[in-house]
Amino acid sequence: MTDCGCDKAKAELEEYLHNELARDDARDIREHMAGCADCSSEFHVNVVMTETVKRACKEAAPEDLRLQVLTKLRDLQSTHESA
């Protein structure tokens, strides 16, 4: 086991979270987090934040808001086209 250290683990945490690291680099980060409560905690915060953003992005705007935005965009477009 080669401890990659906190600096490397934290710098590559986002890539690790999204499975974007080479196998050896991912293994080094995983092994480091197994023994480092600070990096492990930061990883879990990132997991929760990523899941929260994903859920928020799946929610649709209320229909009346969507219609208001589309109407405003069309109004602006027609004003721009006739100018």
Rank of each mutant, 00 (worst) to 15 (best):
D25S: 09
C6I: 00
E81P: 04
M33D: 01
S41E: 12
K54G: 10
H32R: 03
L67Q: 11
T79G: 14
N19M: 10
E59H: 09
L17N: 02
N19P: 11
R23P: 14
D75I: 04
R74C: 04
K8I: 15
R66S: 10
D7I: 14
I29M: 03
C57P: 02
L13P: 08
A83S: 15
E20I: 04
P62Q: 00
C4R: 01
E31K: 08
A83H: 12
E20K: 15
Q77N: 05
H18Q: 15
H80N: 13
C6W: 02
T71H: 03
C36N: 05
R27E: 14
A83P: 08
A34Q: 12
A37G: 14
G35P: 02
A83R: 11
Q77D: 06
A56M: 14
D3V: 06
H32Y: 00
A37V: 12
L65R: 04
Y16C: 02
A37C: 07
L76F: 06
K58G: 14
M49G: 05
Y16I: 09
D75Y: 00
T79P: 10
D3K: 13
E51D: 10
Q77V: 03
H80A: 15
Y16L: 04
A34R: 15
G35C: 04
T50F: 07
A22L: 14
R23I: 13
L21I: 03
C36Q: 01
H80L: 15
C4Q: 03
D28L: 15
G35E: 05
S41W: 08
H44P: 02
E31A: 05
G35W: 04
V48C: 04
R55E: 15
A61E: 08
A37H: 10
D64W: 05
E63G: 09
K8G: 05
E59Y: 06
R27G: 10
D24A: 08
R74Y: 01
T52R: 11
S40H: 08
D25T: 15
A9M: 00
L73P: 02
M1V: 14
